[in-house]
């Protein structure tokens, strides 16, 4: 089932949580809604689920499914498992409340729930209550419960938000495999760019209730549409200067409006000598040499903080150590139209 969000706005007591959001999700796609807290991503998910009504003028359409088959599976951030029911009864809930010709008998319910519990690898815990389970197990119960009604779309609100790092990693891979197997149209909400980049086929970046950019993880990472996106999906180094014939020039011309140049840490070049007006002086503050790349923290003359990633060969060739004076040159950079989606925070 495809999902078509058209011009959806949502206002709560004068606060605009969503502003004219339009979005198409193709059948079988796995999409991430990515953004900082308060950007409206959870509200958008709840509007799609029908838990909130969009402001007049907006609508959510579902294609490729008959009206009575538009079932939506929703996994809540805190799972919302029924505390007084066993794992088995939680998963069976959606089947037990069915009425009319689609009603299943007890044997069919048992069979179906058992199959789902096998799918989420929790058959052994069928008789347990939610409070006896770990966070990761609860998450999988919530998923099995949502899948029991054979949803045509699956919506997940911060599915890994309440779990520790290792469990997150595992569940992320597991969810990816599950999606490849079942191919249910899925939308998940996250504030974690790594999660979105790793899990989603397409990412929709939201900022202050608007869609800032949508595209594949690679597009969003390598061709961010705004400084906000660039900052949100990775680290950014910021330089102020002028653009002269496609090259950044940092020689200060007093009073001239400065252009903001954004570069990722691996897009910076370190040199021991000055390269015309295209490089800036800095001092090596710290070197992190444990990892696939050597990470360095530099400080500019005016107190700017820059983060650089070098490959180990280049690092040895330069023979750098902390405290050393060097020159920084952005090898690649992006310039975004001023005032448009710029990130309110200086890069750390």
């Amino acid at each position: 089932m495809s999902i078509d969000v058209r011009h959806v706005s949502k206002t709560f007591n004068g606060f605009a949580a969503l502003r004219d959001v339009s979005l198409r999700v193709a059948a079988g796609e796995l999409v991430a809604l990515l953004g900082p807290s308060g950007c409206g991503k959870t509200t958008l998910l709840r509007v799609i689920a029908g838990l909130e009504a969009p402001d007049p003028g907006g609508s959510v359409g579902f294609g490729g499914a008959l009206a009575e088959a538009r079932r939506i599976g929703f996994v809540f951030q805190h799972y919302a498992l029924f505390r007084h029911m066993t794992v088995f009864e939680n998963v069976a809930f959606g089947l037990r409340v069915r009425r009319g010709p689609r009603r299943l008998d007890e044997a069919q319910i048992r069979e179906k729930v058992s199959a789902l519990l096998r799918l989420v690898q929790l058959e052994m815990l069928a008789r347990h209550h939610p409070h006896q389970l770990s966070g990761g197990q609860r998450q999988r119960v919530a998923l099995a419960r949502a899948l029991a009604v054979e949803p045509k779309a699956l919506l997940l609100d911060e599915p890994f938000g309440a779990l520790d790092a290792r469990v997150r990693q595992e569940l992320r891979r597991w969810l990816r495999r599950l999606h490849e197997e079942l191919r249910i149209t899925s939308i998940f909400v996250t504030h974690d760019q790594e999660e979105a980049l790793e899990l989603a086929e397409r990412i929709v970046v939201l900022n202050q209730g608007r869609v800032e950019q949508e595209g594949s993880p690679a597009e969003v990472f390598h061709r961010p549409a705004s400084e906000f996106v660039m900052n949100f999906v990775g680290s950014v180094n910021l330089f102020h200067g002028r653009l002269v014939q496609g090259r950044p020039v940092f020689e200060t011309a007093p009073g001239a409006p400065a252009t903001r140049f954004c570069s990722r840490p691996h897009e910076l070049e370190i040199e021991t000598r000055r390269d015309g007006g295209s490089s800036l002086p800095a001092r090596v503050v710290r070197v992190f040499d444990a990892g696939a790349h050597v990470k360095m923290e530099l400080r500019g003359r005016e107190g700017q903080a820059w983060h650089v990633e070098l490959n180990p060969e280049r690092y040895r060739e330069l023979g750098l150590r902390s405290g050393q004076e060097v020159w920084v040159r952005p090898r690649r950079f992006r310039v975004f139209p001023a005032g448009d989606g710029s990130f309110p925070r200086e890069p750390i």
Binding site: L51, G73, A80, F93, V97, A148, V149
Partner: peptide, 15 residues
């Protein structure tokens, strides 16, 4: 949350 979950699983208000 629990009530919303129940409704999304197909339960009516009474259920």
């Amino acid at each position: 949350d629990d009530e919303e979950a129940a409704v999304l699983l197909g339960a009516d208000g009474w259920q």
